[in-house]
Design a protein around this nucleic acid. Sequence first.
DNA 1: TATAATCTCTATTAACATAGTATAGTATAC
DNA 2: GTATACTATACTATGTTAATAGAGATTATA
Lengths: 146, 146
Amino acid sequence: MKITFKGDYALKAVLDLALHYGGAPVTIHEVAKHIDAPVKFLEQVLLDLKRGGFIESRRGKVGGYLLSKPPEAITIGEVIRFMDGPIEPIACVKEGYSKCGDIYKCAFRGIWKKVFQVTSEIVDNTTFEDMVKEISAAQNIAAYSI
Amino acid sequence: MKITFKGDYALKAVLDLALHYGGAPVTIHEVAKHIDAPVKFLEQVLLDLKRGGFIESRRGKVGGYLLSKPPEAITIGEVIRFMDGPIEPIACVKEGYSKCGDIYKCAFRGIWKKVFQVTSEIVDNTTFEDMVKEISAAQNIAAYSI
DNA sequence: TATAATCTCTATTAACATAGTATAGTATAC
DNA sequence: GTATACTATACTATGTTAATAGAGATTATA
């Protein structure tokens, strides 16, 4: 698994919308400011996220973006796979796969599969609700330490 | 963690030399045939592995490549890191790291760290000795199923 | 010592991915 | 009707990947 800038911005953008879930749409300029991303680049990212069904948009004067599902219904694994591709470090770790005949390749397959499984377990069981809590916790600590 | 062709060839090449550990040097042509890699590309890979201290070479007529350490003393994690870079999916998961101030970024840090840890645990505890055993096991199964 | 076999090293290339910019739209609230 | 905001596609610069090319250095051995 490798996270690109695009994927990174996507995760942060969804988190930002999760933090505003239930409220008014958030404009791209606000999101860009919150997550420190170039607006024009973020446009593409948000468009992708929309096509992926993660977010919705409202056009016009009081428009903006909002989460299309509650934060607890979106895992970070979904977003990562959608933006940055498959989790597995090498292609042959798939569902209906059986031995490919290349004995050297197959020797490593068990390792890639293990990596894939433990990684998936983490990212597929972490929702944006969890991330929102993470943020709140961090802010409380910050508040105490002033 | 993402495995490139180069990293993949490197892992297979080291495994090939592990399978011939204790014997005569293996020529690049033999390795290339065993792992099905372009010879000229493999040259660079083997040169890198040599610079990384994983393998040694003998020039001249009966030359070739050999492992510079016994198979049980080389982990696949070492080779992956050397050829394909760090295991962690994002940069800030480092030793001496502390909070960076970007609260959105830090929110995800725990996840990347977990992924990094479980992945490292797997690849850093798998040696080429293990892979050699894996191969033998596979060949025994193949022999039985004839 | 000539020579074939072998490793060494650097340069080059084509294809692709990434990160970002530019520009011309469309929709909507007021 | 106009300012605000999202939509869509094209373009570009840079870097990475996966090779290929070619000239050179080393060594066993006939």
